[in-house]
Every structure is written in structure tokens, then in C-alpha cells.
Lab assay of single mutants.
Amino acid sequence: DHWHVHIDGERIRLDGASEEFIRTLEELIRRGTDARELKEIIKEYLR
């Protein structure tokens, strides 16, 4: 599956992301997590 998110107007691909990770991201977004912080979390995950 190819997922991607838009954060700060930037399109970030989440290739190979699990549904669990996507749900976690959605939860963080709902909580109002800062965009820079979200991008860091995604970069760490994709390593």
C-alpha cells in the first residue's frame, strides 16, 4: 500500500507504513502535535 500525508504543505510518502502507524499518526494529528515534530516521527519510522 502507498500512503502519504500532507504536513505543512509538504507531501510525505509513507511507503510500507503499517495501518497501526497510520492510526498513531492520525491520533497525534488529532492531539495537535506540531508539524515539525510529526515530520521527525515519520523520518524516524521510515529509517
Rank of each mutant, 00 (worst) to 15 (best):
R47I: 15
W3C: 07
L28P: 00
S18A: 08
T24W: 09
R31M: 10
E10P: 00
R30P: 00
D34A: 07
E44R: 08
G9K: 03
E27Q: 09
I7V: 06
D1L: 12
R13T: 15
A17E: 02
I29M: 07
A35T: 09
T24G: 09
E44S: 06
A35E: 09
K39R: 13
H2K: 09
I41T: 08
V5S: 03
R11V: 15
I41F: 10
E40S: 10
H2Y: 13
D34H: 10
L25C: 02
E44C: 06
L25V: 10
L14W: 02
I29H: 02
D1V: 08
Y45A: 06
T24V: 13
L14C: 02
Y45I: 03
E20Y: 09
I41C: 03
L46T: 06
R31L: 14
H2V: 14
D1W: 03
E19G: 09
E26D: 10
I29A: 03
E37Y: 13
I41L: 14
T24M: 11
R47W: 12
E44L: 07
L25P: 00
W3P: 11
I12N: 01
R31F: 10
V5M: 07
E40K: 12
I22F: 06
R36P: 07
D8T: 02
A17W: 04
T33G: 06
A17F: 07
D34L: 07
L25H: 00
F21S: 01
H4A: 10
F21E: 01
D34C: 06
T33L: 10
G9D: 07
E26M: 13
R31H: 10
L46Y: 14
I41E: 02
I22A: 04
R47S: 15
E10T: 05
S18Y: 02
T33M: 12
S18R: 03
S18H: 09
I42Y: 03
D34Y: 03
E27V: 08
L46I: 11
E20Q: 11
E10Q: 04
R13V: 15
K43N: 11
A35H: 09
D34K: 08
R30K: 12
E10G: 02
T33R: 05
G32F: 03
E20H: 10
H6W: 15
A17T: 05
I12W: 10
E27A: 11
L38C: 01
A17P: 05
D1K: 10
T24S: 12
E19I: 13
E27C: 06
I42Q: 00
I12C: 01
I29N: 01
R11P: 14
R47T: 14
H2W: 09
W3A: 09
I22R: 11
L14V: 15
D15Y: 12
E26L: 10
L28W: 05
R31D: 09
L14D: 00
G32M: 06
A35K: 08
I41D: 00
H6T: 15
G32N: 04
I41Y: 11
R47Q: 15
E40T: 10
D8S: 04
L46R: 03
G32Y: 02
R23V: 07
E40Y: 06
I7S: 02
I12Q: 02
K43P: 00
L38V: 08
F21K: 01
E27K: 07
I12K: 01
H2E: 12
A35Q: 07
E26I: 11
A17M: 08
D1M: 11
E10V: 06
A17D: 03
Y45C: 01
D15A: 06
E20F: 08
S18C: 01
I41M: 13
D1H: 13
V5A: 07
K43M: 14
R11E: 15
E26C: 09
H6S: 13
E27W: 08
D1R: 08
H6N: 14
A35D: 07
R36L: 11
K43A: 15
T33D: 03
R47K: 15
E20S: 11
E10C: 08
E27G: 07
V5F: 07
K39E: 08
G32Q: 05
H4D: 11
H6Y: 12
S18L: 04
I29Y: 04
K43E: 15
D15G: 05
F21M: 07
R47G: 14
D1F: 11
Y45S: 03
G16F: 10
E27T: 08
I29R: 03
E10H: 07
T24E: 12
G32T: 03
L25R: 00
I29V: 08
Y45Q: 04
E20P: 05
I22H: 05
W3K: 11
G16C: 06
H6I: 15
E10S: 03
A35W: 06
K39W: 14
W3I: 11
E44G: 06
E44Q: 09
G16Y: 10
R31A: 13
R36I: 11
T24F: 11
V5H: 02
E20I: 08
R30G: 09
L28K: 05
R31I: 12
H6C: 13
G9A: 04
E40P: 01
F21N: 01
H2P: 12
H6Q: 10
